[in-house]
Write a protein that binds this DNA or RNA. Sequence first.
RNA 1: GCCGGUGUGAUGGAAUUGGUAGACGUGACGGACUCAAAAUCCGUUGGGCUAAUCCCCCGUGUGGGUUCGAGUCCCACCACCGGCACCA
Length: 810
Amino acid sequence: MKYDFASIEPKWQKKWLEEKTFTAVTGSDKPKFYGLVEFPYPSGQGLHVGHARPYTAMDVVARKKRMDGYNVLFPIGYDAFGLPTENYAIKNHIHPAKVTHDNIQNFRKQLQMLGYSFDYDREVNTTDPEYYKWTQWIFLQLFKKGLAYKTTMPVNWCTSCKCVLANEEVVEGVCERCGSPVIRKEKSQWMLKITEYAQRLIDDLDGLDFIERVKIQQKNWIGRSTGAEVTFKATTGDDIVVFTTRPDTLFGATYMVISPEHKYVKEWADRLTNLDEVNAYVAEAARKSDFERTELAADKEKTGVMLQGVKAVNPVNGREIPIFISDYVLASYGTGAIMAVPAHDTRDWAFAKKFGCEIIEVVAGGEDVQKEAFTAKDDTGILCNSEFLNGLTVKEAIPVITKWLEEKGIGHEQVNYKLRDWVFSRQRYWGEPIPMVWCDKCGWVPLPEEQLPLTLPEVENYEPTDDGESPISKMTDWVSTTCPHCGAPARRETDTMPQWAGSSWYFLRYMDPHNTGALASKEAMNYWSPVDWYNGGMEHTTLHLLYSRFWHKFLYDLGVVPTKEPYAKRTSHGMILGEGGEKMSKSRGNVVNPNDVIAQYGADTMRMYIMFIGDFEKAAAWSDNAVKGCKRFLDRVWNLSEQVKEGPASDVNAAALHKAIRKVGEDIDAMKFNTAIATLMSLVNDYYQNGCTKGDYAPLLIMLSPFAPHMAEELWEQLGYARETGCMACEQGWPAYDESKTVAATVNIAVQVGGKLRGTAEVPAGSDNAAIEEAAKAVPNVQKFLAGMEIIKVIHVPGKLVNFIVRPQA
RNA sequence: GCCGGUGUGAUGGAAUUGGUAGACGUGACGGACUCAAAAUCCGUUGGGCUAAUCCCCCGUGUGGGUUCGAGUCCCACCACCGGCACCA
């Protein structure tokens, strides 16, 4: 009979759904395993092969875990708020909820066509009011704890999306999503104090089984640096606090720079004799987009203006030094003011050269500081021109000066982070409404929890507005309300939450998705937490992954969730590229649609290929020919079933089979799917070579089942084996392997003379060294190289190799 | 500039972590079956030398080193990819 995937696959998919084969039950005697994949954004284009790689991988792992005896939770859902749906809705005049609903239907169908063993009864949808009720609830808790606040500040504004972006969403000065320029705009925004958790987000990485590059990227993004804050007096009498990582160079501070946005620029206006020039520079800096700033940063042509009429006093030596404003000092980092040490900082050096500032060497050990800054922070630098610091290394000087500053009351050690608070408002329709009310008397008042969910109003027009207000702001009926606190007329917040809100806690909802009284029950969270294994894209490392760790820590502090960290283990997959190695895109015309592959070769071939394509962590290029290779392999497995002889496992295949059982099992656990499949291919080749009994074939089917579950189940049935459910593999468990059987009767020993391979010798397994040496010396080609030589040493690698070290006979 | 990663046949990629480099799959070539093609099956396939699938020599980005033995470890360099980037 022919391998008819087109009828086999729907048959088993139907059975799995009807029988609820893969439904997870909370609570069990078995150990639990929670495997998670990043839920898709249900776009109109449908599932992409880029989804198939991580989803298939986790499905293989989940199926294997069930075979290993785990109670498995493997859920799926839809992260459905967001701009593309809104834009599609605007263009086609369809309500985004309807668009979302239709797209989800399509996605679910596609996921089921690939045979994924998700528990579809636990689906979540971030746009469902029953879901976002809890997203809003978490926001209210953040507000109540002072971690959500509204403030006016310069924000990233995407000129095309007409919407505010988080720092994490700006890539090289342009919008991460649409590629349009991002400008800075002064706006009142809801912010979340992720910075409050910066240290814990770093520290708690240590206990986690995350791949190293994820940890490193998160640490770099948080950007902790230790230094000191030092207070300089200005001639106005004001204190100017600067942040520096090099307090040891304080004696070399010959000028000061404050950011154009610094409060003193305005406060000192009366005293500045070049106010016009200063104001012009401030205006110019404000006008620059982030993109322009980034561009300029490349060649670092420094600009700035000296504040005429005010000076600062260096606290260590009492010298008066000039103060400049320059946009190379950022208002948002440190204190927005720096002491400039041109001798030992390349940026200060470049600025000093351009503006003719004095360059004083205070760390000896480099080249002439008039020609280039000497920045070494290690022990190569020795302090000079620095009074009581002279002669110390940089490392030694830092604690000495820090202590001195503390004693004098003009400074202290300070830790700073690059991480900024999370800009949490979006001026768009299709997002969770922020459940806050503005009352002229009471200020911002949270909506009472019993009024949640605060649902989106029906609007006629979803177009974003040019004035930077959400389209919801036009819905006066919805906006007008009364203050929950004093009852006076009040207005609702009209901005919505960013897409990252719903995905920051969705893995909790999967644990108990239909709960109406809590985001999930304690019982369910205690049982399933934490996520045991989360696989997802590297692009989310400093976005979703960081945000959700933050929210989870906050919920932990509230006592809502039982663990400090949401995810015990994080892995990441490489991208699938188009044929030829270029990124898949509609414009290149190299997009592979999973539906087409399924139609032509079947879902099992698709799954097999996407796992065989290459190293899971690396990018891999699609190849139609290689897909055929996988189909060929499945055909060979299928055809082999017709030649299978009755009888128990054969001796002739025993070594190969038992090695395969070990290797495939280990490889799946380590996500080395490509070599797991290669091992299965080799085993099938052996079976064709040696003949195959039912006893040989059954474990092959079981091992194949995580990759090609439809075929494995079908053949199992056709061969007349017993089963109770739609998952014979779950019932059978992963085959037991017998170490003793992995050893073949004879082994080939590589024979080297002087480290060079000169032949192989076949010896019985377990031969002792003497027997191996004897057999090795009997190999004709080896004899040739031993002739006239004296053996001075013999190196044995058990079961592998023997190496004769020789020298010419005396 | 800083941080991280990767360089292996025509090609995607293996190599039990210092022990027979190139598993497995593509592609190519030769053969079988066929009127023929597709499909399938069998064989060959790193380079050089060679009558030879004998033997020998060379070969894992480049140059050194450690070792009986290096794709794997160390030092220096080159190329490409990813992240961050005026963060004081």
